[in-house]
Measured scan of single mutants.
Amino acid sequence: EQLARLKREFNENRYLTERRRQQLSSELGLNEAQIKIWFQNERA
């Protein structure tokens, strides 16, 4: 579920704002660094 949600977010926007990253962190139970790194890896 977390992965599917991250992929949906990535398809909508390849870059997250700090606020959006905080929201996802709270909703998915991941820390902000994990989300940031995931997005960086997807863009690579």
Rank of each mutant, 00 (worst) to 15 (best):
Y15A: 07
N11G: 11
A4Y: 00
E12N: 11
R43P: 04
Y15S: 09
K36P: 01
F10D: 02
I35C: 06
Q40S: 06
Q2I: 15
A44Y: 08
S26D: 12
G29P: 00
Q2T: 11
E18P: 14
R20V: 10
F39H: 01
A4R: 07
L6C: 05
A33K: 10
R19N: 12
R5Y: 05
Q22H: 10
R20C: 10
E9G: 01
L6S: 04
K36R: 12
A33W: 14
R43W: 14
N13L: 06
Q34E: 13
Y15L: 10
L24H: 01
N11Y: 10
A4M: 09
K36N: 14
K36T: 15
L28I: 13
E27V: 06
R8H: 12
E1S: 08
Q22Y: 08
I35N: 02
R5S: 06
R14I: 08
L24R: 01
I35T: 01
S26G: 08
R14G: 11
E12I: 09
N41G: 03
K7R: 13
Q34K: 05
L16K: 01
R43F: 13
R20D: 08
L3M: 09
S26W: 12
E12G: 03
N31D: 15
S26F: 13
N31E: 13
N31V: 06
N41P: 01
L28F: 02
L3H: 08
Q22W: 05
E18F: 02
Q22D: 05
E27I: 09
E27S: 04
K36W: 11
L24Q: 00
A44I: 12
L24N: 01
R21W: 13
R20G: 06
K36E: 15
L30T: 00
E1D: 12
N11F: 10
K7S: 05
F39R: 00
A44R: 11
S25F: 06
S25Y: 08
A44N: 12
I35D: 01
L16Q: 04
L24M: 03
A4V: 07
N41S: 07
Q23D: 09
R43D: 07
R20Y: 08
N13F: 04
R14F: 04
T17A: 05
Q23E: 15
E1P: 04
R20N: 06
I35K: 02
R5H: 06
N31L: 09
E27N: 02
E27H: 05
R21A: 15
S26E: 15
E42M: 14
E32T: 07
T17G: 09
A44K: 13
R19K: 14
N41I: 09
R43Q: 12
Q34V: 14
L16P: 15
F10K: 01
N11M: 13
E12D: 09
K7P: 02
L28Q: 01
E18V: 13
R20W: 05
E12Y: 05
Y15R: 08
I37V: 08
Q40N: 08
R43L: 14
L3R: 04
K7V: 11
N31T: 15
Q23M: 11
T17W: 03
N11Q: 14
N13T: 04
Q34T: 13
Q40P: 04
S25T: 04
E27K: 04
K36M: 15
I37A: 14
R43N: 13
N11I: 11
L24K: 01
R19L: 14
S25E: 05
L30M: 14
A4T: 05
Q40C: 09
R8Y: 09
N11W: 09
E42G: 00
E1Y: 04
R43C: 12
E1G: 10
E1F: 05
I35A: 00
K36I: 15
R8K: 14
K7D: 03
K36S: 15
W38I: 06
N13E: 04
K7H: 12
L16S: 01
E18Q: 12
A44G: 06
R20A: 11
E27F: 04
E42Y: 05
Q2H: 11
Q34L: 14
L24F: 00
R5V: 08
F39I: 01
N41E: 09
T17H: 05
Q23R: 10
L16M: 05
L30V: 06
Y15I: 12
Q22G: 05
S25C: 10
A33G: 08
E1R: 05
L16V: 05
F39C: 04
A44Q: 13
A44F: 08
E9R: 03
Y15V: 11
S25A: 15
I37W: 13
L30K: 00
Q23F: 07
N31I: 07
K7C: 14
R14S: 13
F10N: 01
R43E: 11
K7F: 06
W38C: 05
W38H: 04
